[in-house]
Lab assay of single mutants.
Amino acid sequence: MASQGTKRSYEQMETDGERQNATEIRASVGKMIGGIGRFYIQMCTELKLSDYEGRLIQNSLTIERMVLSAFDERRNKYLEEHPSAGKDPKKTGGPIYRRVNGKWMRELILYDKEEIRRIWRQANNGDDATAGLTHMMIWHSNLNDATYQRTRALVRTGMDPRMCSLMQGSTLPRRSGAAGAAVKGVGTMVMELVRMIKRGINDRNFWRGENGRKTRIAYERMCNILKGKFQTAAQKAMMDQVRESRNPGNAEFEDLTFLARSALILRGSVAHKSCLPACVYGPAVASGYDFEREGYSLVGIDPFRLLQNSQVYSLIRPNENPAHKSQLVWMACHSAAFEDLRVLSFIKGTKVLPRGKLSTRGVQIASNENMETMESSTLELRSRYWAIRTRSGGNTNQQRASAGQISIQPTFSVQRNLPFDRTTIMAAFNGNTEGRTSDMRTEIIRMMESARPEDVSFQGRGVFELSDEKAASPIVPSFDMSNEGSYFFGDNAEEYDN
């Protein structure tokens, strides 16, 4: 783990906690998980779902989305002020799938948001429990990260689609708070800032007046979040320049895209947490497990152990491969979309394939898809080993990566060399080191050039047997250095459309 220093740990961010010791953190995270579980059980009762239907990941996603929508204050306010045809701002819903006479049927349900809020609060001892809501947002974000390569979004903001390893959390809503900021990748933060800068260039009043003052505060806050992700002084200094700019424009845009590229080699610290679907927490609570009393951590053995003992089902389209669908969801559960496939294969105990080789589309089923041909199958979400999630980018030494994705962002704290394609990355730096950030740029390029592919990161860190909950005997895996390590390699994943 990167030293926490003055930073709060993510469990504290996750639970809005002030400084807590490890036991208190485990208890408050457990409380959050228990609340999600209780809410899910109650919703299944309301909807009269069978046990099997309640364990269907598509039903879980609909129920999670309903509660997130019920608590989305800004959108609710907007919907009330701008009524649109056929949208009731006070209601929320989605597809629920039921097994009827041996076939899967889709039923569109509609609930009062007020009623959903009441059920959620009741499951969370009367609190709004925003930490639990954020947790579900991060699960949705991790699922998107594993399912889609955001080529269009990258290109629109002047970045290269091969930089997708920097895009963790790119679909997280803005209201996801400190826990959300911690899991956002460098590219995601750059993209958010670039969008602001572009608006400022096109709209003279963007930075002016009372609204402009708020915009400015948001801009500086985002700059500080991004600065905190960088691990070298030169990158941090460049972020200070971007933040202090009187009138952010093209120079800042250039600096930010430069920094994003540099992060492929001088990786930023991005938190990883295993956020599971509500249909995993519900049955665990129903079986009598007391998360608050037992304590829970999002970055240790607990999620692995929970998945070892969970039964989750998914709808499967006619030509999809259930094992591939399982891999997709497994990666999402562990926030591992940008991790090295060699490491993932070792931990999972079966070969993890790149996205383009998977015969599976996303987990969600569109409303126009034919239910007649839908089957369902068990998702295999178990693992051979477990490993500690990392909050750091690993040290800054790398190795060759593949054509589709030119770097990785480690999820697990496991000893290995970190793949990246130096030639491709360095070719993108057209040696432009003039301007006010020239000395920093020169320094950053120097550090990137001296990074050695064969150097090892996370020295001495290994994986653990599932029986080793105290992480007492690390097993340090050895990897084939020459092997392909990137998930979005030469990829044809669908595009994420909101």
Rank of each mutant, 00 (worst) to 15 (best):
S3H: 15
S3A: 11
Q4G: 00
G5Y: 04
R8Y: 01
R8N: 02
S9E: 03
Y10P: 14
E11I: 09
Q12V: 04
M13K: 12
M13L: 05
E14N: 02
G17R: 15
G17Q: 07
R19G: 09
N21G: 14
N21P: 01
A22V: 14
I25Y: 06
I25N: 11
R26F: 15
A27F: 12
A27E: 08
V29R: 01
G30Q: 07
G30D: 08
M32L: 11
I33Q: 04
G35W: 14
G35K: 06
G37W: 11
G37I: 10
G37F: 09
Y40V: 00
Q42W: 07
M43F: 14
E46D: 12
K48Q: 12
K48R: 13
L49Y: 02
Y52Q: 02
R55A: 10
Q58F: 03
N59G: 02
S60F: 06
L61D: 02
L61Y: 01
L61E: 02
T62H: 01
T62C: 11
I63N: 05
E64V: 10
R65H: 08
L68Q: 12
S69I: 04
R75V: 04
R75Y: 07
N76D: 12
H82M: 02
P83M: 10
P83Y: 06
S84I: 08
G86A: 09
D88N: 11
D88V: 08
P89H: 15
K90A: 02
K91S: 10
K91H: 00
T92W: 08
T92S: 11
G93V: 09
G94W: 07
P95F: 08
P95D: 09
I96T: 11
Y97Q: 01
R98T: 11
G102H: 14
K103S: 03
K103G: 13
K103L: 12
M105Y: 10
E107R: 07
I109K: 03
I109H: 15
L110C: 11
K113N: 10
K113I: 10
I116N: 01
I116T: 08
I116R: 01
I119V: 11
I119E: 04
R121D: 01
R121S: 14
R121Y: 02
Q122T: 08
A123M: 10
N125E: 12
A129G: 08
T130G: 05
T130R: 13
A131Y: 10
A131G: 15
H135E: 01
M137F: 10
M137A: 02
I138N: 10
W139M: 10
W139C: 11
H140T: 06
D145R: 00
D145I: 04
A146G: 12
Q149M: 08
R150T: 12
T151Q: 07
L154C: 09
D160A: 14
R162I: 02
R162P: 05
M163C: 14
S165I: 01
S165W: 03
L166F: 00
L166N: 08
L166R: 01
M167V: 10
M167Q: 05
L172M: 06
P173E: 09
R174N: 03
R175W: 11
G180M: 10
V183Q: 02
V183K: 01
K184T: 05
K184M: 13
G185W: 05
G185M: 06
V186P: 03
G187K: 03
M189C: 12
V190K: 00
L193G: 10
L193W: 11
V194F: 09
V194G: 08
R195G: 10
I197H: 03
R199I: 09
G200E: 13
I201L: 15
I201V: 09
N202A: 15
N205Q: 01
F206R: 02
W207R: 08
G209R: 05
E210N: 11
N211D: 13
G212P: 01
R216G: 10
I217D: 08
A218P: 07
Y219V: 08
E220H: 10
R221T: 10
M222Y: 09
C223K: 08
N224F: 02
L226I: 11
G228M: 04
G228A: 13
K229L: 10
K229T: 07
F230N: 04
Q231H: 15
Q231M: 06
T232A: 13
T232K: 15
Q235N: 03
A237C: 02
A237H: 13
R243L: 02
S245A: 15
R246D: 08
N247T: 11
G249E: 13
G249A: 12
N250A: 10
N250T: 15
A251K: 02
E252C: 03
D255A: 06
L256H: 12
T257H: 08
F258C: 08
L259I: 12
L259C: 07
L259G: 01
A263F: 04
I265V: 15
I265Y: 03
L266M: 13
R267Q: 06
G268S: 14
S269A: 12
S269L: 11
V270F: 11
K273D: 03
S274C: 09
L276S: 14
A278H: 07
C279R: 03
V280R: 00
Y281T: 08
G282Q: 10
A284Y: 04
V285C: 13
A286Q: 07
A286F: 05
E292P: 09
R293A: 12
E294C: 11
E294P: 00
Y296R: 01
S297I: 07
V299H: 04
V299N: 08
G300K: 14
I301N: 10
P303M: 08
F304A: 12
R305K: 15
L306R: 12
S314P: 06
L315N: 06
L315E: 00
L315H: 01
P318W: 15
P318R: 11
N319C: 12
N319K: 13
N319S: 13
E320I: 04
N321A: 13
P322Q: 11
A323N: 04
K325E: 11
Q327R: 08
V329M: 12
V329Q: 00
M331S: 06
H334V: 06
H334R: 05
H334F: 06
S335E: 01
A336T: 12
F338D: 00
F338H: 13
E339H: 05
E339W: 04
R342M: 03
R342P: 01
V343D: 02
L344A: 04
I347R: 00
K351Q: 03
V352T: 15
L353G: 00
G356M: 11
T360W: 03
R361F: 07
G362H: 05
I365G: 09
S367G: 13
T373V: 15
T373A: 14
M374S: 03
E375C: 06
E375G: 12
S376E: 03
S377G: 06
T378P: 01
L379M: 15
E380F: 02
W386H: 03
W386G: 10
I388C: 07
R391H: 06
R391S: 07
G393I: 01
N397K: 10
Q399A: 15
R400A: 14
A401P: 12
G404F: 00
G404V: 14
I406F: 04
I406Q: 12
S407K: 02
I408V: 12
Q409W: 03
Q409G: 08
T411M: 10
F412E: 03
S413Y: 06
S413H: 02
Q415C: 14
R416G: 09
R416H: 12
N417S: 06
F420T: 02
D421G: 09
D421V: 09
D421L: 04
R422M: 06
R422V: 15
A428I: 12
A428S: 11
F429A: 01
N430Q: 12
G431F: 08
G431L: 13
N432S: 10
T433M: 00
T433Y: 00
T433I: 10
E434I: 06
E434L: 04
E434K: 08
T437D: 11
T437A: 07
S438L: 01
D439P: 01
T442W: 05
I445D: 01
I445T: 10
E449T: 03
A451T: 15
R452G: 12
R452T: 15
E454M: 10
D455C: 02
S457G: 08
Q459K: 11
Q459I: 04
G460V: 04
V463Q: 07
F464L: 10
S467P: 07
D468I: 05
D468A: 09
E469I: 07
K470M: 13
A472N: 11
S473W: 01
S473M: 05
P474C: 06
P474R: 11
V476I: 03
V476R: 06
P477K: 01
S478P: 11
F479D: 01
F479L: 11
M481C: 07
S482R: 11
S482M: 07
N483Y: 14
E484F: 04
G485C: 14
Y487R: 03
F488E: 08
G490R: 10
D491L: 04
